[in-house]
Design a binder for these strands. Sequence first.
DNA 1: TTATATACGATAATTATAGTCGTATTTATT
DNA 2: AATAAATACGACTATAATTATCGTATATAA
Lengths: 132, 132
Amino acid sequence: MLKLTRKVEYALIAVRHMQAMESGKLTSAKEIALSHGLPQQLLAKTLQKMAKENIIEAVQGPSGGYRISSNSDKISLKDFFEKLEGPLGMMDCYFDSECIQLGACNIRTPIQRINDNMRNMFSKMTLREATQ
Amino acid sequence: MLKLTRKVEYALIAVRHMQAMESGKLTSAKEIALSHGLPQQLLAKTLQKMAKENIIEAVQGPSGGYRISSNSDKISLKDFFEKLEGPLGMMDCYFDSECIQLGACNIRTPIQRINDNMRNMFSKMTLREATQ
DNA sequence: TTATATACGATAATTATAGTCGTATTTATT
DNA sequence: AATAAATACGACTATAATTATCGTATATAA
Ligand code: FES
Ligand code: FES
């Protein structure tokens, strides 16, 4: 319960790897995967997703790769998580109002209260803070 | 990601159900399950777990059932979660140090920092506050 | 004695996550 | 122009975790 996914885990590892690189230098999916013992294909997908979301920059072709994006400093942990995994709710009903109950729901308010707190916490932490 | 389990969800529903009862009165697993459309057997197990953990009180035999325990006021949401689902870590390595990586781990510190924040947040919220 | 409730271990079903495969595209290098 | 090495993506499979059920034992009020 309340676990991160591997995708996010790998993303964090990759971010730290890129932050540790000399400024502007590229690194590849292969390089990160090998040096941390991660499944390359899965990591590659995660990197592609991060590139699409402008967390990192991608350069194609041989001698291409990825580097950390400059605006990654501003991104919150909440946004980081949501860009990778979609809306961040402890229960699905937080967003799509598909209540699991027949109609006698008595936890909508509690769930929202708890979830708001969690989202608020992750909004206040930046990716930079968390990974530095 | 970062979702509650059904077990916890059902537990929250049950707690609120019992809080709404007249003081001291008992309610049964069947009653709760029927009135909220939950699977009775699974809910029953969760109630048994809660009873074992002194979150609620159990009375056996016909006309038995459960009622909210008086010390449920003091319990934190973190303890509530952990009593039901075990240690609360966003990654397993937070506790058993079974690092997923081959040996080149670079996220131990970040993970601990993030997780400490989360645990701290749930430590500060009481079950009572959350469900009232 | 019966009926109804909790207690609990074992197992099955379902769902979500994790990982792989195949192929297309880009582009530096030769 | 050909090749090789990288990103880009969709479809698929495998694995793990969660969810739910089954069967049986025990307690106890009526
Ligand atoms: S269970 Fe979330 S709204 Fe009812
Ligand atoms: S992944 Fe958690 S300690 Fe390395």
